[in-house]
Amino acid sequence: MKNLNNSMLGSVALLILFLVLWQWGPGLLGMPEFVMPQLSRVAQESVVMWQTGGLLQHTLITAFEIIVGFGLGALLGVAIGVSLGLSPAAEAMLSPYILALQIAPKVAFAPLFVMWLGYTIYPKILIAILIVFFPVMINVLSAIRTVDPDMINLVRTMNASRWQIFRLVEFPSAMAALFSGLRIASTLAVIGVTVGELVGGNQGLGFLLVDAEGQGNTAGVFVAIVMLTLIGVLAYGAVVWAEKRILHYMPKAMLSTQ
């Protein structure tokens, strides 16, 4: 507990130091405002954007796109990861295509999705799904493949069905790896949605960022970046909270993938 308190105090101290440097550092270094605005200037701009720039509305739109893209991408990753993990033949057949999809730069898909679906929320959600899918899928696939065979054989001796083996042994054993993938995916979802909004958006924080950049409003750019960062932190924190709540009630033996 003492070490935890010391770590929290250290983190708070670093945050305070960062904010102090942000407030007074640009002035001491002689940086003009269009290069690096002070923290107080960014705070003032955030109030203006909240009152007259629709900051809340754009933030909610981006958050909705991230939640939907993350959820659908995670579900797709789990479904395909489990399917490939249980079927080596299917993995051998589909792996080259899944790998090719992962290697292809997601940014390149953004203009195509916009051309297909227009300036709506759907292109951003699709990009988030593509980015979230792979880390979740590969973690689940690896976990399913490395389940202790002795555990499976033990359940089989009790005349368990294939579904019972999956429900009682294989899926619980993959939970730790699943949440590791979800942690990564929660941050990637923010990146995916932001890329979509930057390429072809008329709403959302990515749109606000581009709009502020076009006006030379550096403080407005920082406001959008800070809001995107906060959403990412909240998304990551939600995954960590769920992980602790769920894995806490599962036997440690069931979480082992060795």
Rank of each mutant, 00 (worst) to 15 (best):
A212D: 02
E45Q: 11
V195D: 05
L17K: 02
K106I: 05
R162V: 00
G214F: 03
I16L: 09
L4K: 02
L154T: 08
T52D: 02
A79V: 05
G30F: 00
M158E: 04
Y249Q: 13
A242T: 13
I225Y: 09
I61V: 14
L39M: 12
W50H: 02
L29Y: 03
Y119S: 05
T229H: 11
P37H: 12
M49Q: 13
G10K: 07
A160C: 10
V169D: 11
L209E: 07
S40V: 08
V223M: 02
V136H: 09
S83H: 09
A238K: 14
D150M: 11
P26T: 03
S46C: 02
Q258W: 00
I127H: 06
A177N: 10
A238G: 10
G216T: 12
G77T: 07
I80F: 13
R245G: 03
L154E: 08
L76W: 15
L101H: 07
V155N: 10
E170K: 15
L4N: 07
G77S: 13
G81V: 02
L205Q: 01
G216P: 11
L101P: 00
M8I: 08
M158F: 14
L94P: 01
L99V: 14
V68A: 10
L39D: 14
Q102K: 13
L198C: 02
Q38H: 08
A176R: 13
G196A: 10
F113H: 03
G192C: 04
G220F: 00
L178V: 01
P105R: 07
F109P: 02
G232A: 13
I184Q: 09
D150V: 00
T120R: 11
Q102P: 04
L99M: 15
Q44D: 12
T120F: 15
G196L: 04
T257A: 14
P149H: 08
F34K: 04
W24L: 04
A242Q: 15
V195N: 03
G196T: 11
V147L: 12
F133A: 02
M49V: 00
Q38N: 08
Q203W: 00
L208M: 14
I16C: 03
A224P: 01
Q164M: 09
Q203R: 09
K2F: 14
G81T: 02
L76E: 15
A79L: 07
I66S: 10
S186Q: 10
Q164W: 05
A238S: 14
L75V: 13
R183G: 07
V223P: 00
V155G: 08
